[in-house]
């Protein structure tokens, strides 16, 4: 229990750091955001009074540390401020898109696991045989293929030529399949290799012979005794990959014109819509930290040797 508290405490510290960095970046960008924003809004050079008025209204004239404290206090209460361009709450903008992005991330991880785990196991069991060689070559291709390129390829083949899936947009399973494959394939390749090596190592262990010596069927030996051990390192990597998945989601969302945090963030950056930028980065960081925490805690279930109090020495 104390370990969970400890992890939560470190998570808070990390998030605090992230908030500081995000805030700092936005404020260190050259140029006066107020002026830029007013140009965007009105389409002409604003008067200095108008700029001053805007700055006052948005609290930009307060000392920087006040602005930061206000922002963090708000964030803790779920209030990330308002978009410069509409009256929309940043938090509700993000919430709408967060769902889309998480849906994509989770779907692509599922795609990766569904491909990787059985392939990795088959590869390990039939080491050196055609099935292994094929899967290894497949993995090599999968790793080397950039995800946006695969995304376009999928659109051309399955959406434009075969008309099986919609080209872009969101909503419903048919909108999710292509982006999830585009994003999940690279990860599938990495995880396949990992499952294979991990499985090969485990199969050589003596407890596998013990399991066989009990008279267990080979299927149960592999899928119960070996797999559970082989999955331990896989979980670590999948957990770490989550950061890359979020990263990749930004790209894939643009390729597929999917609403999501990626599109939201890019638009906000171009528009210098700072409250939104800050909010998205913060939310992404929270997602990342929370998912890592979950991965860490899931070890407890997978590997009873890890005592939670000791794993972080």
């Amino acid at each position: 229990m104390s370990y969970v508290l400890y992890r939560l405490a470190t998570a808070v510290v990390v998030l605090f750091g992230v908030s500081l960095v995000t805030f700092g970046f936005v404020h260190a960008t050259p140029g006066d955001p107020a002026e830029t924003i007013l140009i965007e809004q009105t389409g002409q050079q604003p008067s200095s009074e108008a700029v001053e008025e805007f700055r006052e209204a948005e609290g930009m004239n307060d000392p920087v540390h006040h602005q930061y404290v206000d922002w963090v206090t708000g964030a803790v209460h779920g209030d990330l401020g308002q978009s410069y361009f509409s009256d929309a709450e940043v938090s509700s903008l993000i919430l709408d898109d967060l769902y889309n992005t998480l849906e994509l991330a989770v779907a692509s991880i599922l795609v990766a696991l569904v491909i990787a785990v059985p392939t990795g196991i088959a590869s390990a069991i039939h080491q050196g045989q055609p099935i292994d060689v094929t899967s290894q070559i497949g993995a090599l291709i999968g790793v080397s293929m950039p995800n946006f390129w695969l995304g376009y390829l999928l659109i051309i083949v399955f959406a434009l030529n075969l008309n099986m899936f919609p080209v872009a947009g969101s909503g419903g399973l048919e909108h999710l399949i292509l982006p999830a494959i585009a994003l999940g394939t690279g990860m599938a390749a990495i995880v396949t290799r990992l499952v294979r090596t991990s499985m090969l190592e485990v199969i050589d262990q003596e407890y596998i012979d013990t399991a066989r010596s009990k008279g267990l069927k080979e299927r149960i030996v592999v899928y119960k005794h070996a797999l559970r051990n082989a999955l331990i390192p896989v979980v670590t990597v999948v957990g770490l990959q989550l950061g890359f998945v979020l990263n990749g989601a930004v790209v894939i969302e643009i390729v597929f014109q999917r609403p999501g945090l990626g599109n939201l963030l890019v638009d906000a950056i171009f528009a210098r819509n700072y409250p939104v930028v800050q909010g998205v980065v913060l939310v992404a960081a929270v997602t990342f930290v929370v998912s890592n925490l979950l991965v860490d805690l899931s070890y407890r279930y997978l590997d009873p040797r890890i005592k939670l109090g000791e794993s972080q020495q």
Binding site: E206, Y207, A211, H225, N229, R305
Partner: peptide, 10 residues
């Protein structure tokens, strides 16, 4: 070797 002959996760 009883250290390696039992499955560590069960």
């Amino acid at each position: 070797d009883p250290n390696t002959s039992l499955n560590p996760v069960f």
